[in-house]
């Protein structure tokens, strides 16, 4: 896969994965699975790392010089492709299942936050490396 296409697909995959997770969180809040302070805690875990990745991606598309200088024809190796696209899907699947596990159980909420944190570290950081490498 060419770098240009991979960049676009990675952006869409990450955006949609995050959108699903955030909307699922809001939906759980609407159906009273979580109260407002729990919603805030979850969003505080889920959003920041993604926004740093998004900044890198948006910066790339705003910078004409970068786009002109970019090596679009280069082929992206398959492990990176898998980490980028499948990683986003796995992240989405993992986060949604964790969020659906014990809605409302206050005592279990700390464990749940921990599991969400693990998800963010595992997927967010690796995806961050891929983003940094592809969007430079």
């Amino acid at each position: 896969m060419q770098k240009k296409i991979f960049r676009q697909r990675l952006l869409y995959a990450m955006l949609s994965a995050k959108l699903v997770v955030v909307s699922w969180t809001f939906f759980m809040w609407l159906t009273k699975g979580y109260n407002f302070s729990q919603l805030k805690d979850i969003l505080f875990l889920v959003v920041p790392l993604f926004s740093t990745n998004l900044i890198i991606m948006v910066q790339y598309y705003l910078d004409d010089e970068k786009i002109a200088a970019a090596d679009n024809q280069a082929i992206v190796p398959s492990p990176i492709r898998i980490i980028g696209i499948v990683g986003s899907l796995l992240y989405c699947f993992y986060m949604v299942s964790v969020l659906s596990m014990v809605p409302g159980e206050t005592e279990a909420f700390n464990d749940l936050k921990e599991m969400l944190g693990w998800g963010e570290i595992l997927f967010g950081v690796y995806l961050g490396y891929v983003v940094k490498a592809v969007f430079k």
Partner: peptide, 16 residues
């Protein structure tokens, strides 16, 4: 007390 509407609370603790 009230709990999630989407998933029926499994335990008594899940109600707030």
């Amino acid at each position: 007390k009230y709990g999630s509407g989407l998933f029926r609370p499994r335990t008594v603790k899940a109600y707030r």
